[in-house]
């Protein structure tokens, strides 16, 4: 199974509750990921209302940038989850992230060595 690059764990690596995994997948929007992953019930770090999409105030309090906050997914494992389910969801997450990144111009630019922070965005 090919592991993904540019994935960040949110929250302390050890002082955490068993079963929780909160990850940010750079260059991928969390809500898009969940739309592509309908067979798994997960939660994204964006609070989505009909009018706005707010990045999580918890992730922002950690100083995580808005982009990575919007790229976060919370996995909440529990008593009734099996290893088979974990493997299945893991595989599907990797597929989905790879597919979305392939479609992302930002990801392409980053791979070509462009520092996205230096990009001059055009005015609309």
């Amino acid at each position: 199974m090919g592991a993904l690059e540019d994935v960040y764990l949110n929250g302390h690596p050890v002082k955490r509750m068993p079963g929780n995994l909160n990850l940010s997948f750079a260059y991928v929007e969390g809500e898009s990921m969940l739309m592509g992953l309908r067979e798994a019930a997960l939660s994204s770090g964006s609070a989505c209302t009909s009018a706005t999409l707010e990045p999580s105030y918890v992730l922002q309090a950690l100083g995580i940038g808005i982009e990575l906050a919007h790229s976060s997914i919370r996995f909440g494992l529990g008593r009734f989850n099996t290893e088979e389910e974990v493997d299945y969801v893991t595989g599907r997450v990797i597929e989905t992230v790879n597919r979305l990144r392939e479609m992302s111009p930002l990801y392409e630019m980053a791979k070509e060595g462009v520092n996205l922070k230096d990009v001059k965005w055009g005015k609309h």
């Binding site: 690596p13 068993p18 995994l21 990850l23 494992l77 008593r79 290893e83 974990v86 969801v89 893991t90």
Partner: peptide, 23 residues
Amino acid sequence: EEAARLQGKAAQRARGGIGGCLS
């Protein structure tokens, strides 16, 4: 027992599988 199960194989597979080099 549950803590060990969730922290053990399951979490390692998810963490290791999804992000090979979690920073």
